[in-house]
Amino acid sequence: MKQNKKHVGIYICLIIGGILFLIPYIYMLIASTQNNTIILSKTIDFRISKYFGKNMKYLLDNYQYFRVIWNSIVVTVIGTIVSTFVTTLAGYTLAKYKFVGNKFIFSMIMLSRMIPGFAVLIPTFLIFSKVGLTNSYAGIILPLIASANAVFIMKQYADSFPYELIEAARIDGAKEGLIFFRIVVPLLKPNIIASGMLIFMGYWNSYIYPLVMISDSNKFVVPLVVRNITQASQDDLNYGAMMAALATSVLPILLLYVWVQSKFKSTEMSAGIK
């Protein structure tokens, strides 16, 4: 009885928390169907309105929205695959091989985690500009591949990987590459996906590198368009269109994230970020 009452209290707290965390997302969805007159009215209007089409048209007319979404997809997919592979391999190597420089390299990576991204922004831009990588997908993909965070997460996961399995495979005469692809990757799959999802979201949301690297509007990614709606052009801020951009770029990706997350139940984010 007492236990039940306590649970009611916990549920109420959790649900209030949940609502507070969800409201902005729900609002994105609703407001994407409204226009400025409704959004900026004196009353709270949470009803679906009829302006979604008009808002999308504004995005298509002014910002080549489909092209922008496509750019974001290309950058995110390529970046995620390459970065996940590279960091998984690095994390596994640092966890499971003894070699000269292991400790040194690992501490360099750890040290680099506390360097603010801003410190490397300008020189990275200059280097990329020299080799002609600005205004290209590569200009946004490359700077985020060597994610120290992802290596750290993967090393943590790989640390707990049973060494005996690797030894046994070696005795059977398996090559090192084969061990990685045939034994390590399948067993660490949920962890790789967890780390990969974080990398994925990192690419999808990346803002400062595209902001600096991309000047050609054909190569814009979603966050740049959102920024431009809030700041560019001489029109008044079209809140409805901004919400339409958010509803169509943030929500589907979050749903994908949640779906992947639930599909690989064993994935425990906390183990990685500890």
């Binding site: 902005p24 609002y27 994105m28 999802m197 974080l198 979201m201 999808w204 949301n205 803002y207 979603v222 966050p223 959102v226 920024r227 709606i229 809030t230 901004m242 919400m243 958010l246 770029s249 943030v250 979050l254 994230y257």
Partner: peptide, 10 residues
């Protein structure tokens, strides 16, 4: 995992 740009805009 939501873009800060999106969060700030909302």
């Amino acid at each position: 995992v939501t873009s800060l740009v999106a969060v700030a805009s909302v």
